[in-house]
């Protein structure tokens, strides 16, 4: 930013000796405007830059990859397995630890609250498109040495080193699966609530993802909690750090807060309808009435 500041100072200094900027003496940047009219004379007349006949004039360009009769490159090799089923594969857009640290440092994320997809999307800097096969965020290890925050975070995919980095600081990480419809509700809860639809029930992971989310090594949400605490110790020994005792932590309640496997929002259960205008929660009959009605709502939408 410093160079911008410097150039601004220079420009402002220059303006002092220039005539007053007025409506009559300003003009757009050169070549920024495209003339919609076709010239008629020497420089842009004749064919108007479209060439003589053919695709240039008629805009009937050949299809992409067509090599005017040659065996096209994309058909020349009979088998490309590495893209097989690419349109069906789950994508996990990356979120680096450095980015996360910046979001925390700039108060875009409150470290005193558990972090999930909704929190990340509410920062305004990250976005998910569940409709285009994006199934959540993966936490990558860029900036791992600078990560200093103690957080409780839930992502959809994380490497072992990332898990170690978070647990070293006394934080908790879980990997959890969300189906696209649930994710759609999480990306923009306000929009979902305004539709008046009940909160959907989170589906269980598909067959090929069960193994990942049931593994304690990956801190999967379907794993046995005791296995996870064992794996925490194993990882601490492997990476050589002392595991902070989260039981003694003042934020213990926050750190252990976890969603149910069928739950989408903290404090809100599937089947409930949220009325934003009247600030009410309409619960379905199957669930018992809770006294802390308003509190639960606050947790869910914050």
């Amino acid at each position: 930013m410093a160079h911008l500041r410097e150039s601004a100072e220079k420009a402002l200094k220059m303006l002092r000796t220039l005539p007053r900027v007025q409506i009559g003496n300003i003009r757009p940047n050169p070549n920024s405007k495209k003339n919609t009219k076709r010239g008629r004379a020497q420089h842009s007349g004749d064919k108007h830059g479209a060439g003589n006949k053919g695709s240039g004039q008629r805009q009937n360009y050949m299809r992409i990859g067509y090599e005017t009769g040659n065996n096209p490159f994309y058909l020349r090799f009979p088998y490309e397995p590495y893209y097989k089923g690419h349109h069906l594969r789950r994508q996990y857009p990356p979120l680096s630890l450095l980015q996360l640290q910046v979001l925390l440092d700039t108060n875009r994320i409150d470290p005193k609250q558990p972090i999930d997809v909704t929190t990340l999307c509410n920062t305004g800097l990250l976005n998910l498109q569940p409709a285009s096969m994006e199934y959540g965020f993966q936490l990558t290890d860029d900036g791992i040495d600078r990560f200093k925050a103690k957080i409780c975070i839930e992502v959809q995919h994380a490497k072992e080193s990332v898990i170690a980095a978070i647990e070293k600081n006394g934080g908790v990480i879980r990997t959890a699966y969300y189906d696209p419809r649930s994710l759609q509700a999480m990306v923009n809860p306000q929009k979902w609530f305004e539709k008046g639809e009940p909160i959907p029930r989170r589906l269980l992971p598909p067959q090929d993802a069960v193994e990942y989310y049931a593994s304690a090594k990956n801190r999967g949400y379907l794993a046995d909690p005791e296995e996870i605490s064992k794996e925490r110790l194993v990882l601490a020994q492997k990476y050589g750090y002392e595991l902070p005792r989260i039981e003694d932590d003042p934020d213990y309640e926050m750190l252990i807060s976890q969603k149910d496997a069928r739950q989408i929002f903290y404090g809100l259960e599937p089947g409930w309808v949220i009325g934003l205008r009247d600030k009410v929660i309409v619960k379905s009959k199957g669930f018992p009435e809770e006294p802390s009605n308003t509190k639960a709502k606050k947790d869910g939408t914050s």
Binding site: L4, R5, S7, A8, E9, A11, L12, L15, V21, I23, I26, R27, P28, N29, S32
Partner: peptide, 19 residues
């Protein structure tokens, strides 16, 4: 504040606004 009263004097953006 310099971000409001001493920013880059983008005369081209001023012109776009006028237009």
């Amino acid at each position: 504040h310099p971000d409001v009263f001493a920013t880059q004097p983008r005369v081209d953006v001023i012109q776009e606004n006028i237009e």
